[in-house]
Every structure is written in structure tokens, then in C-alpha cells.
Write a protein that binds this DNA or RNA. Sequence first.
DNA 1: AGTACCACCTGACGGC
DNA 2: TGCCGTCAGGTGGTAC
Length: 267
Amino acid sequence: MPELPDLERFRTYLNATALHETVKRVRVPDTRVLENVSAPELDRSLRNREMETVDRHGKFLFVRCQDGKRRGGIDLALHFGMTGELAYYKDDESAPEHPRVVFDLASGYCLAYDCPRMLGRVRLVKDRDAFLRAHEVGPDAMEIGEGAFREGLGRYRGGLKSFLMDQSRQAGIGNVYADEILFHARLSPKAKAMRLSRAEARRLYRSMRRVLSLASERKGRRERFPRTWITPRRRRDDPQCPRGCGSVQVGRVNGRTTYWCPGCQEH
DNA sequence: AGTACCACCTGACGGC
DNA sequence: TGCCGTCAGGTGGTAC
């Protein structure tokens, strides 16, 4: 489930592979992932452009595509839904299984946007900030300051889990990392955001930063997460709290599968 | 301003 | 074997 740390992995990956390469052609094996552009338009817009820079904001990846002869660049905006990823390869036999958009590069390599469950989206964006505003995407979760974070919390009438996952407050946190952050902060997913003390709000902010940055370092690979984390307990029968206080609860909070330890996550 | 619920999607998995 | 239901999950729409 691509969340901020996974998006960081994709950013690093693209940086190390297709960056500075020129698009020769864009193929779209499945047009359903295209949002505001047709397949021919996408091809026409990106052909002969160089993938110049790649940035992440929340769960979006923006690839700046530039053409020396044409004025102005354009951003390719990738969202990975729940199962998307990138693949860079030369031979067709190493192609991924569900390529939905494939960028053929001048070097002979391909960059594929692979998205088995089709929940991701590919778009062209002229003005990144306007796009983020239009889609109500707030500051990136690794960029937002403690003050702004606490202010958002104080005004939010719902529970902590839905607050953390609300992309308009801070962008990048999904279902899995929301649980991990709350576990670290020792706060219940159902606790009311507005009711947190200053110290609790600070704890939540620090947990968010610690979890997201360590997870990004570990490339979002769950098998590399510390054993003290709750994420590796997901999808196990009878998951136990890493702090040794007994069974982890599995239930639904705001309609999402939620793992938490009632023993150490108060409220 | 939240929440609840559905739709979009497909692969994996359990039950029969 | 193979069919069916259910689940996973991010986003976005609608009703309340």
C-alpha cells in the first residue's frame, strides 16, 4: 500500500534510473488509469521531453518533463493507489505483469507504471501548486511543522486515525502508517483529536516524524521494520503487542482495518 | 465538518 | 477443479 515511505522509494528509484533520460514514446496498455489526458495526448505531450527532476508530495510523485526547444515544462503526476509501482527495464521479459503506462526512453530502456488493481492515476499537471490546492492536498507530512500540526489537531472534530489519514491536513499517511504512528504515540485511534493535551499532541507529531523517516530509510519494506513496531504484526493470527501487554486488537475504525493495543494505547 | 457507505479495481484466499 | 464470496486499500462521491 503505497504511502509516504513507499513513495520515497519510488522517488529514489526513478532518480537512479530514468532521470535525465528522454521520452521517445508513451504507450498506454490500459487507458483507465489516465485521469485528465488521453493516450495520444500523453504521448504527444511527453515525446522528446527529458525527465528532469522528480519530487514527492504526500502520495504523489511529480516528474518534471522538459524540452529544450519547447517553452515551459510539464509535470507528469503519478498516484499509485494501493498496488502501484515503477519498473525500469530493457528486455521485455523483465517487464512487470501489469504495465498500464510505459515510457519508452531514448536509451532503449522503459519505465513502466505498473498498477495491478487500477486504483492509481496518471495525469499531466501544468501548475503543481494549483493541482494540489484543487485536490485539497495539504502540506507533506514530513514538511509540516509542529505548530501547524497541533493547530490542525485542535480544530479537528473527529478521531485521531481519520485525522492522520486526512490528506488535506498533512499528506502521505495511509491506513498502515496511521496505525504505526498511533502505536508509537501510545494513543488510541478512536481518541478525539481536539481533546489531546499539548504533550500528547507533541508526542503524536514526534511519532509521525520518527515512524515516517525510519520507514523511508528502510524503503518501506515491512520485513526490515524493527520488531518493536506493530506493522509486522498485521495479517498474523493472534497478533501480540510488541511491548508485551497482550493481544493486539483488530477492528474497524472509520471503515478501515485497524490494529491497536488497548493495553498501551489509552483514551 | 465529520462520518458512513458505496464504487472503483483485481489478486489472493477460504469454503464448499 | 472451479466457482463464489470476501477482503485488502486510496480516493472520491453522496447522503446524513
